[in-house]
Design a protein around this nucleic acid. Structure first.
Lengths: 192, 192
DNA sequence: GTCTATAGCCCGATAGAC
DNA sequence: GTCTATCGGGCTATAGAC
């Protein structure tokens, strides 16, 4: 599986960086290899020399996130189920989002990427394992909705232009605060 | 602006319904007029007889949501700024999501749709007005992040398969509860 | 490793018969 | 209102020169 990458894979890295930019601006389906090549100042064929297909580019762009997610899942799985483990997973996810701000907002939720990831055995099923780790095997409707809202919100903060001005430290603190309020607050009886 | 729609616009409605289905499955850029026509059992030209361009179809699919959002914005704008108004807007958004479950999750956040809406004067700026109504003119970082998380989460619940089993009543109750915890909870001092 | 050139397909969109 | 047929163009992908 090792590929003989000339001297250094620097062109390869430039392709991936440019692809990510364009995916963020136009979406994956809206980005052609021609656009990537144009922005790099090379031809389509040069890009094809680095990646066999467009799907390979997408998978390579997403890979760092998936690998990191897998590590988080394994670390969490090794711990006993508890409130502490839930918090460990949530904080890990927040840090993951911070480390890949743009990437997550753009690529996850994209139907093209979803289908692509689902067709690759090693990455499919991660989100299901995640849900179980956070809400347990038999979640209540409250748990389900809370996790869905927080998960969806977490993914969307990356690409949110309103939040571009916040530095990582502030964003981490605020996201942890939001998680506490949303996920770790006891239900209070409400009078109808 | 009234269009002379043959006898009844039933074919037109079928096109829109089918388009929505496909947008949900493949994304907007990933859906061709050929796919829409194939699923309907007609040819591309028949679809083109109902809509001048693909963009017209997308705009028409989104229109009910935008119109309802505009009504909500105007009703809210007529009220004095207060906690009560914030809650009114949030509850209105929740009901809007419930009324268009699939549509919202699929189309909003799609770069193609975003660009299309931005180029149409009458719909652009709605989300900005929304943000102001909920968090005010000078939002704190906490407000910004809370609203971003809840907004992103709200949009994503529509397409979430984990939540497909929940009926509208349950989902409304749980979303309101999540909004209370996330948006309307006083900050508590935390010891570092 | 990058180039030119091209194959073959599907795209959005149009014209005109029925 | 639906059809067949077609346009021009962009797409992914390949072949082969430098």
């Amino acid at each position: 599986m090792a590929k003989p990458v000339g001297r250094r894979g620097e062109t390869r890295e430039r392709v991936l960086a440019t692809a990510l930019e364009l995916f963020a601006e136009q979406g994956v389906s809206g980005t052609s290899l021609q656009m990537i090549a144009d922005r790099l100042g090379v031809t389509k064929a040069a890009v094809y020399h680095q990646f066999r297909t467009k799907d390979d580019i997408v998978l390579e762009v997403v890979r760092p996130v998936m690998e990191r997610l897998l590590v988080l899942l394994e670390e969490a799985g090794a711990r006993p189920a508890s409130q502490e483990r839930r918090r460990f997973v949530v904080h890990g996810l927040i840090d993951l989002v911070l480390a890949h701000r743009r990437l997550l907002g753009v690529l996850f939720g994209d139907p093209y990427v979803d289908a692509l990831l689902k067709s690759h055995v090693e990455t499919s099923g991660h989100t299901d394992r995640l849900t179980v780790l956070v809400v347990g095997e038999t979640p209540s409707p409250t748990d389900l909705v809370s996790v869905a809202v927080f998960g969806g919100g977490l993914v969307s903060v990356g690409g949110d232009p309103n939040l571009a001005g916040l530095d990582d430290g502030t964003l981490r603190r605020e996201l942890r605060g939001a998680a506490e309020r949303l996920l770790f607050t006891e239900e209070v009886a409400r009078v109808p």
